[in-house]
């Protein structure tokens, strides 16, 4: 092992590989620059560009609206973080209900099916209206009246149905042989789910879950229709007074900044999982 040194032929081959890599790198760079340049030129040379730039990309309005949106975005983040926890919990419960087999749980199973069918069919914004305006109007004792609270509940209700289906797809994608080997070890159906099937199923659905959460982050803006002063509401408010849409673009910027770290985190988690499970194997 120590006495080995690469042959002349191998050294040449390495040089060729390096050249090929360099060439790929150059092509990638050139193509990227070219495409973005062309797109940029097409947009900025269009006849209406000065007008669009003034309405959507005015740096002056961006600066002016920034602090208010910055303050408001925390509400979105809070709403998102709270909702996410409850969505994950209720979604996995709904999914487990749906894959249960016990005759005792039939009512739960039916409820879960009806729930996902009905809730997924309702536009989220209607749920926000229904809950944020309807619930306080019932004048029930002991329930909060805040728009923030009910908008968050509406998001939880809506997204639980979607995420439950994602979980169920993950659970059902686990190969039957895994069920067989767990049951052969004497595990009950519940234990098999808990220790064997769900952990594998959940890993598989991390990318689609992320998709749903990015979508959830953006849908926190629906709270604006319940008169919650979140980022989009504030931006629209500013726009209505100043006849300029730049604040909406600023708000969009905030949403992008929020989602990118989440995406990278998920990529990293998935990659780590693969590394651990496939270490060395092909």
């Amino acid at each position: 092992m120590i006495d080995w040194s690469p042959s002349q032929h191998e050294l040449e081959r390495r040089q060729v590989r390096r050249r090929i890599r360099l060439r790929s790198g150059l092509i990638a760079t050139a193509m990227t620059v070219l495409v973005f340049l062309v797109v940029g030129l097409v947009v900025t040379s269009s006849p209406g560009w000065p007008r669009v730039q003034e309405t959507f990309f005015s740096s002056e309005h961006a600066r002016a609206s920034f602090p208010d949106i910055w303050d408001a975005i925390w509400l979105n983040i809070k709403m998102f973080l709270i909702a996410e926890v409850f969505i994950l919990l209720s979604a996995i419960l709904i999914a487990l209900c749906r894959v249960s087999r016990s005759p005792w749980l039939m009512p739960l199973r039916i409820t879960a099916v009806v729930y996902t069918d009905v809730v997924r069919g309702i536009p989220t914004i209607l749920l926000v209206y229904l809950l944020a305006i309807g619930m306080p109007a019932l004048q029930l004792q002991g329930l909060p009246n805040s728009g923030f609270f009910w908008a968050t509940v509406a998001l939880i209700v809506s997204y639980s149905a979607y995420v439950a289906e994602v979980f169920r797809a993950g659970i059902e994608s686990v190969h039957p042989s895994q069920w067989a080997s767990a049951e052969a070890l004497g595990l009950s159906r519940g234990q098999t789910l808990r220790h064997v099937v769900v952990p594998q199923g959940v890993r598989r659905v991390v990318p689609p879950l992320l998709n749903d959460f990015v979508s959830l982050q953006k849908d926190t803006a629906l709270a604006s229709s319940a008169l919650v002063f979140e980022a989009v509401f504030v931006a629209r408010d500013y726009g209505n007074y100043n006849f300029n849409y730049t604040p909406l673009v600023v708000a969009a910027g905030f949403f992008i900044v929020m989602t990118v770290p989440l995406a990278r985190l998920c990529d990293w988690l998935t990659a780590r999982m693969r590394r651990r499970e496939l270490a060395g194997a092909l």
Binding site: W4, P6, S7, H9, E10, R13, V16, R17, I20
Partner: peptide
């Protein structure tokens, strides 16, 4: 390292 030739041609060339 090394060389693989197939049908008279080096195929280990990148």
């Amino acid at each position: 390292d090394g060389v693989i030739e197939f049908e008279g041609r080096e195929i280990s060339d990148p």
